[in-house]
Structure formats: structure tokens, C-alpha cells
Design a protein around this nucleic acid. Structure first.
Length: 481
RNA sequence: GUCCCCAUCGUCUAGUUGGUUAGGACACCACCCUUUCAAGGUGGCGACACGGGUUCGAAUCCCGUUGGGGAUGCCA
């Protein structure tokens, strides 16, 4: 495939970027980049009732946060959006009206004057009769003329032919065919004059020279309508690829209500965009071997529609978290410091220098999934413990612990504060007192951190420094006895 | 109801031309390491929805059943 590969992501600005949409956008992006093609962003805002202020900005913001830059579309190139603009359907109205008129003239479409009530009744009867065919909405010629003369509102409908088998060779599903007899006369132009998805989509994909339509599986059933439109309008057919759906844990189509579905939700929870992308890329695609960690560039290198699955995939938060943990571990410390610092300021825990924070991060990053967990699980790196974990006290702080800790502190004072040396002192002291080193190790951890869990004790002490440690040990002997 | 799509461990999946002890990852369990917790290592648990064909041989091909999902909007 050459540079005339053109794909598009065409979201409706009804709020936010759905993770399913992100996956669709990602596959389109990967396909475009892989083939040296063009990735277009088109805003499908033909439904005035669902218009949400700021949704387009939020959408673009989420896309950019993930690093999916588009070549054409609103704001793609600063002042200029691209050669096939405008890229908002609300700005392309004439095109749709022109196409609808053309279809009207050629007899592929007709004006329909049915009322909502009539339509509802037709649907009910259709279902009651268990009839497999098309909804019979066409009015006799004279009745249409009469209603038109009465000035009744109308829509433009596609006049679906009888007895045809409409099939397409889908890039992920192979040949899919549907009989035209069961395809309804799709509304093309609504009574408010705006086009429906079906018309606008086909007109724009053609006008924007889209070569591959890569979209969600929910569009597969309407594919025959689109085929008919391409044909009636005399457009060349693009290639189609219908992607498997992203699912809730109950296998229904991924939706709000059963968890977070907006990219911005995950951004707020401080997932790394790389982790989200990596995770979402593997929902429906894999490279065919055991590798799992992929940067965007590596995905571009490996991606192929041939390896896209047919069945839906459950969005599994645990796996996403695992990816995030992996990414956190390979992150440059400087970046994590930058994430950590505002959290500390927010908690009013004061200022800490980079070197100190870097050490804390090194000790903690293998134990957490998100940077924000570092101050949560490791508050003791920043403030003295104000209480001691009850269970740990019960288990580790014996009657003699207070005196032992006092003797240990005395011996430690003024000595080397390197982890290795500390370890030597602990072991030596234990030997002297003829007890297990654990009798010092556990109470010390408790005294210094307030908890029974955490990083390697000696390294933790080294990082914390002599002053903090001795102060805390003495405080603990007072409080715990 | 009707139409379309789908079907391998709990989850994501490998398996692309029929012959594998059906592989990996997440999660879970055990052990090792660590006198903590993680991480890491080792091992374990765990799947071809069912029934018919075709074939010497089927997870793989065909048919049916069942199950799941999607569509059926003047939403996209």
C-alpha cells in the first residue's frame, strides 16, 4: 500500500473519548503510519440534539494526550486543517443536500411523509407478524403528493431495491453478505435538513478519499446501506474493516455505568497514556508471539489488520494496571519526581530535594502501580509516623523491645549510615544480646515507619538518614514502652 | 421477533497450509529469594460450548444446536 492510504477516525462529539473509540482511533492511526498514509480526524456532529459544548476540544485533547496526532482535521496543522476540509460535518451541509438531491433525481431516494405515530405502528406490526422483510414505510404516490401539498414535514429515504445480495469483503471478517430485502429504507436527510450518519459518512469518506474504513463492529449491519449509497452515488468502494467490540465484564458492549469508559477518567487516575495505549492495542490484536510491551512506534512497526481478531474483548482493569506498573518501573526517575512533588506539596509535607526523592522512588516503585501510591504507602519518608499499626505492634513489639531499641539506638548513633554497615551493626548487636536479628529488625521498621511492611529495612534507614531514624526510634520507645 | 457477527483457561490471547504433552500474559495458589511487603525465580490451577459429519487423523474444514453480542432511531 502506498501513500494514498487514507483512513479516518470519525467520532461524534457527544462528551468524551470512549476507550472503545480510542482503540478504533489507535488502529486507524497505526494503519496509516504503517503504510505511510494519512490519518484524518473528522467530527461527526450532525445531531444537533446531542451537541455538547466543549466535547470536540475534550476529544482532541484526549487523542493528543495519547500521542495520536492526526494529519488532517480540526487544528491538525495550526491554522489550516487540511486539503479536504472542512472536517466538521456541520460545515459540510451543502455536500449532503447535493448528494440527497442527486439520489432523489436518480430515483435512488424518495421523500417520506410518514408521521412518528405511523412509523411506530408499522414497527409494532412488523414485529408482531415476525416478518423478516423490510419495514413497509413507502406511501402511495398520491398520498405523498397530498401530504406534500399540505406542507407536511418530510425526510429523504433511501429506496432499497428488492432481491439483491449485498456483500462486502471485510478485511477482518471475510465476506459478509445481507439480502437487500431485509434492509430498511434508511433515512438519509432528517426533517431538519441534516444528514444522518449513513449519508454523511459515505459522502465524506468519498470526498476525503478515504481508502480504508476501519470502524467498530456495530456498523456491520448497516454496511449494506452504505454499499447501496456508494453505488447509487457512483462512488468507488473503499475497503472495510469492522473491529470487534470492547466489552463490559458481563460481555455487553462496553458502557459507562459499569465502570470508567472515558480516556480522561484513566488520565485522571494517572494511568500513563503509553500503558493505556499498549493495553488497548492488545484488545483485539496481538503480534503473534509472546511480546507484550510495545511503544507506539513498535506498534506501528508490528501492526496488521490481518492479525485483528473477530470476537469482542473484555476491558480488564487488572491487566491495564499491570501495564501501568511496568511502565512506571521503566520511567525516568526525574519524571516521577515531577509527579511526586506536587502531591507532597498538596499534603503540606514540605520540601524535599531531588536526590532524596529519587532514592525514595527507587525504593518504592517496585511496590506500587501509580506514583501517587508512594506518598500513600510511604508517608513515613516524608513525615514521622503518628501512629503504629496495631497488628504489627502486637506481633513485633515485645515487652523487652523498648530497652533493646534504646540500646540499639545508642550504638547506632554517630556511626556509618550506609545500608551495609547498618546491617552489620544490627547483626552484631543481636549476637551480643544472644537473640535473633529479627528482634531488632521488626521493631525498628515499626518504630521508623509505623507499619510492618515496606522496602528493605537497611536501605530504608539509609535513605531516611540518622536523625530521622534515631528520633523515631526514641519516640517509639516512649509511646510503645 | 427479524437480520448480522462471534465462540480456546476466570480474563486477554497463540494456534494462520488439519498431526502440539493445546503455548504465553493477567489474576489466583504454593515454594524459593527476602527475618517485612513487593518485585523476581520455579512450579501449580485452569480452556478447544455441544452434536453430527469429512479424514488414517479435527481446536483447526462442513452442517446443525446452544450460548453470547450487535443492529433493528429523524443517535452515531
Amino acid at each position: 500500500m502506498s501513500s494514498d492510504t487514507r483512513v479516518r477516525f470519525a467520532p461524534s462529539p457527544t462528551g468524551y473519548l470512549h476507550v472503545g473509540g480510542l482503540r478504533t482511533a489507535l488502529y486507524n492511526y497505526l494503519f496509516a503510519r504503517k503504510h505511510g498514509g494519512t490519518f484524518v480526524l473528522r467530527i461527526e456532529d450532525t445531531d444537533r440534539k446531542r451537541f455538547v459544548e466543549g466535547a470536540e476540544e475534550a476529544l482532541i485533547d484526549s487523542l493528543r494526550w495519547c500521542g495520536l496526532d492526526f494529519d488532517e482535521g480540526p487544528g491538525a496543522r495550526g491554522d489550516e486543517d487540511g486539503p479536504y476540509g472542512p472536517y466538521r460535518q456541520s460545515d459540510r451541509q451543502e455536500l449532503y443536500v447535493a448528494a440527497a438531491n442527486k439520489l432523489l433525481e436518480s430515483g435512488h431516494a424518495y421523500r417520506c411523509y410518514r408521521t412518528d405515530d405511523e412509523l411506530q405502528q408499522i414497527r409494532e406490526e412488523h414485529q408482531a407478524n415476525k416478518s423478516p422483510g423490510r419495514l413497509k414505510v413507502r406511501l402511495p404516490e398520491e398520498e405523498s403528493a397530498r401530504r406534500a401539498a399540505d406542507g407536511m414535514p418530510s425526510v429523504v429515504r433511501l429506496k432499497v431495491p428488492d432481491g439483491e445480495t449485498l456483500s462486502v469483503n471485510d478485511l477482518v471478517r471475510g465476506e459478509v453478505s445481507i439480502s437487500s430485502d431485509i434492509v430498511d429504507d434508511q433515512i438519509l436527510l432528517k426533517s431538519d435538513g441534516f444528514p444522518t450518519y449513513h449519508l454523511a459518512n459515505v459522502v465524506d469518506d468519498h470526498a476525503m478519499k478515504i481508502s480504508h474504513v476501519i470502524r467498530g463492529e456495530e456498523w456491520l449491519p448497516s454496511m449494506p446501506k452504505h454499499l447501496l449509497l456508494y453505488r447509487a452515488l457512483g462512488y468507488e468502494l473503499p475497503q472495510f474493516a469492522h473491529l470487534p467490540l470492547l466489552l463490559n465484564s458481563d460481555r455487553s458492549k462496553l458502557s459507562k455505568r459499569q465502570g470508567d469508559v472515558a480516556v480522561e477518567d484513566y488520565r485522571e487516575k494517572s494511568f500513563y497514556p503509553e500503558a493505556l495505549l499498549n493495553f488497548v492495542a492488545f484488545l483485539g490484536w496481538n503480534p503473534g508471539d509472546d511480546r507484550e510491551m510495545f511503544s507506539l512506534d513498535e506498534l506501528i512497526e508490528e501492526f496488521s489488520l490481518k492479525r485483528v481478531n473477530k470476537s469482542g474483548a473484555i476491558f480488564n482493569l487488572e491487566k491495564l494496571s499491570w501495564f501501568n506498573q511496568q511502565y512506571l518501573r521503566e520511567r525516568p526517575v526525574a519524571e516521577t519526581i515531577g509527579q511526586l512533588r506536587p502531591l507532597l506539596t498538596e499534603k503540606g509535607w514540605g520540601e524535599f530535594d531531588d536526590a532524596y526523592l529519587a532514592e525514595v522512588i527507587e525504593l518504592m516503585k517496585e511496590r506500587v502501580t501509580f506514583p501517587y501510591e508512594i506518598p500513600e504507602l510511604g508517608s513515613y519518608f516524608f513525615v514521622d509516623p503518628t501512629e503504629y499499626d496495631e497488628k504489627t505492634v502486637k506481633k513485633r513489639w515485645k515487652a523487652e523491645s523498648g530497652e533493646r531499641m534504646t540500646r540499639l539506638a545508642e550504638r547506632l548513633e554517630g556511626g556509618s549510615w550506609k545500608a551495609d554497615d547498618l546491617e552489620t551493626v544490627f547483626k552484631d548487636q543481636a549476637e551480643k544480646e544472644e537473640i535473633g536479628a529479627g528482634q531488632f529488625i521488626h521493631p525498628t521498621r515499626l518504630a521508623v515507619s509505623g507499619t510492618g511492611v515496606g522496602p528493605s529495612l537497611y536501605h530504608m534507614l539509609e535513605t531516611l538518614g540518622e536523625e530521622r531514624c534515631l528520633r523515631r526510634i526514641r519516640k517509639a520507645t516512649e509511646v510503645l514502652g
